[in-house]
Design a protein around this nucleic acid. Structure first.
Lengths: 217, 217
DNA sequence: ATAATAGTGTCTTTTAGACATTATATT
DNA sequence: AATATAATGTCTAAAAGACACTATTAT
């Protein structure tokens, strides 16, 4: 059997959440070579004795490096080549997470950075983040994916604000409500949200949905 | 630096083409362990001294194993885990190719198999093919991707037949023509196709398009 | 002339978007 | 009462789909 020298196999994770009205990404401070001290995506080696697959490795690594143990996970893209990592020919199976802001632990092990205010990043982490944002934007335009960023219950105005933050453009309230309710993936919950003025109905994702990345419209 | 034992890193390729009015996939006969003699997807190890990235590895491997050196290429998904390959914890960076039927070499090094008549397949190759077909179907419903399966020039009826074969459902002729021409990605070519009856205008992909996976509609 | 295929036109339904209007709370 | 926000309604434009009709060739 041809046993060629093997590439390094890592997993990088792009955790996206909604903060201050925009998409933010989780960055951690690297403590090892290469680029010790630099801010970067949480990432690490696949452990063949431990991980069931790349997705499981992503969850393990994210918990280890940032203490984040919840969220919707999807494989993003696999980046590879001889130059992206100074340790040699490498493969990074990138994954993205959508996490509710209130499910994030205290920010003592990571930083939340708006996606349009990224610092210098090592490896090809900027390209990985760009791809994740592009994927989520794209899916937001025709699926219920952004609901993963919302709490248990929410008003339709809050949901629309979430979509607008992800997509980066305003959406018509009337069309949005109609499409979202017609989809059947968002249903009335008990109670209302008291605010400054007329209270808004609370909604929740239709039980048992499981997969919010459903196509609507 | 933590130097964990590394997984095997391979690339598998799903070559799709149109034959006998339906989607077909290229299968080769394996000549090595594991599963020698079995029909399988063309696949092989990434060579870190040779390949610029996983996509380049896919092109190299497809040329080596099946003699196919042309076609549209896109990364599909990365399959991984301890059981999918008997040699151990493995990563397969799967890619799919869309190749014109007439660009395929003689079928002496591979077989063309309709996607609904797959034989027993080793590894998780059946799941990989399913994912490729799903991806192409999905993209066909809103992009110009299937044009990669067409020859230089084609009639709109031929193009529609191609879309119908990929999607597996009939499309309205009128709407199809209108949408396709309005997209601007398909333009008139010189000449017509003589047939049994009224000849049809020839069209071609709009020059310099490069990426046929464009969103239309 | 007839058959077969290419190509166009018409009508209906659906959808999205812009925008106006009504509803209900707080102050 | 004034105001701010929630929720709904109306109108228009665009798109999709069903289907009928016309056009052009071979036989």
């Amino acid at each position: 059997m041809c046993d060629y020298p093997k590439p390094i196999v890592t997993v990088d994770t792009v955790v996206l959440t909604l903060a201050d009205g925009g998409l933010n990404v989780v960055l951690v401070r690297r403590d090892k070579e290469p680029f010790p001290g630099a801010q970067a995506l949480p990432g690490g080696f696949v452990r063949i004795g431990e991980d069931r697959d790349a997705g499981a490795a992503a969850r393990r690594i994210l918990a280890e490096k940032a203490g984040i143990a919840t969220g919707f996970l999807e494989q993003l893209y696999t980046f590879s080549g001889p130059v992206r990592d100074p340790r040699g020919w490498s493969v990074s199976i990138a994954h993205y997470f959508l996490v509710r802001r209130e499910d994030l632990p205290a920010e003592d092990r990571f930083a939340l950075v708006p996606i349009d205010r990224l610092p210098e990043l090592p490896f090809d982490h900027r390209a990985i983040i760009a791809k994740a944002v592009e994927r989520v934007r794209s899916k937001a335009s025709y699926t219920t994916l952004p609901i993963h960023l919302m709490p248990e219950t929410f008003t339709l105005e809050e949901l629309r604000a979430c979509y607008e933050a992800v997509l980066g453009r305003p959406l018509d309230r009337s069309s949005f409500r109609q499409k979202m309710l017609a989809s059947g993936f968002v249903v009335l919950a008990l109670g209302e949200r008291k605010g400054q003025h007329r209270p808004a109905q609370l909604y929740r994702a239709a039980s048992p949905i499981g997969d919010f990345g459903r196509v609507i419209g």
